[in-house]
Simulated scan of single mutants.
Amino acid sequence: MSREDLDTLFEAPPIAEQERMVEAILFATSEPLKATALAARLPHGCDVMHALASLQKRYQGRGVHLLRSGDEWAFRTAADLSFLMQKETVETRKLSRAAIETLAIIAYHQPVTRAEIEEIRGVSVSRGTIDLLMELEWIRLGRRRQTPGRPVTFTTTQAFLAHFGLETARDLPDLKELRAAGLLDNRPLPGTPDEREPVENDTDDMFE
């Protein structure tokens, strides 16, 4: 077989066809997929990132969006239409202030050790708070610090990014945006420029 025949045999399909293939795979899977996983299913020579970017642009303003969280991609219902998916009223419980503070410190200072979290908050962090955030799969253990005792660090997870609709941790909103969205009250969070008084204890219930 000649070189020309080989090139023809392994020639990638047109980008429009690549988009259709990626679209079909993502619609058929229940879990987000990495670009490498998509590439493994496509014909040789396909430009997966180009296809994903084109699809993402094409679905802007539609009922579903192609969202990227970290290095994973998935179709999700448009945020403003999520109410259509609800069949019944679900009672939601808010995280306690202690849990919110701990999660915020990890998100904005990661990787961070437990001692560093406690130094920022000015109070010890209860085991229950860490366990809760781990159970929600919003934080995970990171690399150990190369310091005496080699303490573990905490970082946010892919599930955290997906839950809050973030592509990367760099997309985290600032405090003003959080308060404007009603996600935080006007009391300052420890470790931030507008901190005024330290928190005295960590005896809040994990949920309010």
Rank of each mutant, 00 (worst) to 15 (best):
F27N: 06
D5A: 09
D47Y: 06
R41V: 00
R20K: 15
T29L: 04
S54H: 09
Q56W: 03
A16M: 10
K34G: 11
A39W: 07
L33C: 09
L33F: 05
D5E: 12
L9Y: 02
K57I: 06
I15T: 15
Y59H: 15
Q56A: 14
E11C: 08
A51L: 08
I15L: 10
F27V: 11
A16D: 14
A12M: 04
S54D: 06
E19S: 01
E19P: 00
L26M: 07
E4L: 12
A16Q: 11
Q18H: 02
P32L: 08
S30E: 11
A28G: 11
T29R: 14
P43F: 02
L52I: 14
Y59R: 15
A12K: 08
S54E: 03
H44N: 06
M49F: 10
V22D: 02
A35R: 14
L9W: 01
I25W: 05
L52E: 01
V48R: 05
R41A: 07
P14V: 12
D47T: 01
Y59S: 13
E31D: 08
L33R: 10
R58G: 03
A28V: 00
A51V: 02
T36L: 05
M49Q: 10
Q60E: 15
V22F: 05
E4K: 03
T8Q: 09
Q60L: 10
S30P: 00
L42A: 07
R20T: 04
A53P: 01
D7G: 00
L26F: 09
T29D: 08
L6K: 13
E4M: 04
R3T: 08
Q56I: 09
E11Q: 10
L26N: 03
G45E: 04
H50S: 13
P13E: 13
E19A: 03
T29A: 12
R3Q: 06
C46A: 13
P43D: 09
P13I: 08
T8H: 04
D5Q: 11
D5L: 10
V48D: 11
E4H: 04
D5V: 09
T8D: 13
C46Q: 05
E23T: 04
I25S: 08
T29I: 01
R58K: 15
I25E: 14
A37P: 01
L38V: 01
E19W: 02
M21I: 12
A24C: 07
Y59G: 05
L52V: 10
R3M: 01
V22K: 04
V22I: 07
Q18E: 06
T36D: 11
